[in-house]
Amino acid sequence: MSARRNPRPDWVIDRRIALGHRIADLRHRAELSQEQLAHLASMERRSIQRYENAQRDPTYSDLLLIAHALRVHVTDLLSG
């Protein structure tokens, strides 16, 4: 994998971290494991783990699937 020429600004990384925290918080409130959320969202558990740990940026489609599985609106994930 090649390195980015222009690394992401700190504010982008901060928002990715905040998104991961919101996903984890909403998952905990729904009393779901990462495995259960992944199943409900038709995703891999590893993807949920990477999003919660801010290791990857989710696609818009993945955000929609996660929001649907958590029974929240996608803006609840993005805005907190």
Rank of each mutant, 00 (worst) to 15 (best):
H73G: 09
L78G: 06
M1S: 15
Y51H: 12
I17D: 04
D25A: 13
L26W: 04
Y51R: 05
R50V: 05
T75N: 06
L32N: 04
Q55W: 08
H28A: 12
R71L: 13
E52A: 08
R71C: 14
I48Y: 06
L37K: 02
D76M: 05
A67D: 07
I23P: 05
I17Y: 12
R46S: 14
Q49S: 14
H73P: 01
Q49M: 10
L65E: 05
D62Y: 03
D62T: 07
N53K: 14
A24F: 07
I17H: 10
R45P: 02
R8K: 14
R16E: 12
E44W: 08
A38K: 04
R4Q: 11
W11G: 07
T59Q: 06
N6D: 15
I13D: 00
V12D: 14
I48H: 03
G80A: 08
V72W: 00
P7K: 08
L70K: 02
R16H: 11
S2I: 09
D62E: 11
A30Y: 04
R15F: 06
L65I: 00
D57L: 02
Q34S: 09
L37H: 01
M1N: 09
N53V: 10
D10R: 14
L70N: 04
M43I: 06
D62L: 00
V12N: 07
L32Y: 05
A67R: 03
S79P: 00
L65C: 09
R15Q: 15
G20I: 10
H21N: 10
A67V: 10
L37C: 02
R22K: 02
S42D: 13
R5W: 08
E35M: 07
V72Y: 00
L65A: 15
Y60A: 12
I17P: 01
L32F: 07
T59M: 09
L19D: 02
R22D: 04
S47P: 01
R29Y: 09
R4A: 13
R15E: 15
R46I: 05
D14T: 13
L64Y: 07
V74E: 03
L37D: 01
P9F: 14
M43V: 03
L37Q: 01
H73L: 00
R27M: 03
I17N: 06
R50K: 15
I48S: 03
S61T: 14
M43K: 00
R71N: 15
V72R: 06
R4M: 13
S47E: 08
T75Y: 13
E31I: 11
A41C: 00
R45L: 01
R50H: 15
A3G: 01
R5Q: 15
Y51L: 12
H39L: 12
A41P: 04
A30Q: 09
L64D: 09
A24M: 08
R50D: 14
I66S: 01
H68M: 07
L40D: 02
S47M: 08
P9R: 08
A18G: 11
P58S: 07
P7A: 01
E35H: 08
Q36I: 00
W11E: 15
S2Y: 12
S61R: 14
H68K: 09
H68V: 05
L19G: 02
G80Y: 11
D25F: 12
S47R: 06
L26H: 06
E52P: 12
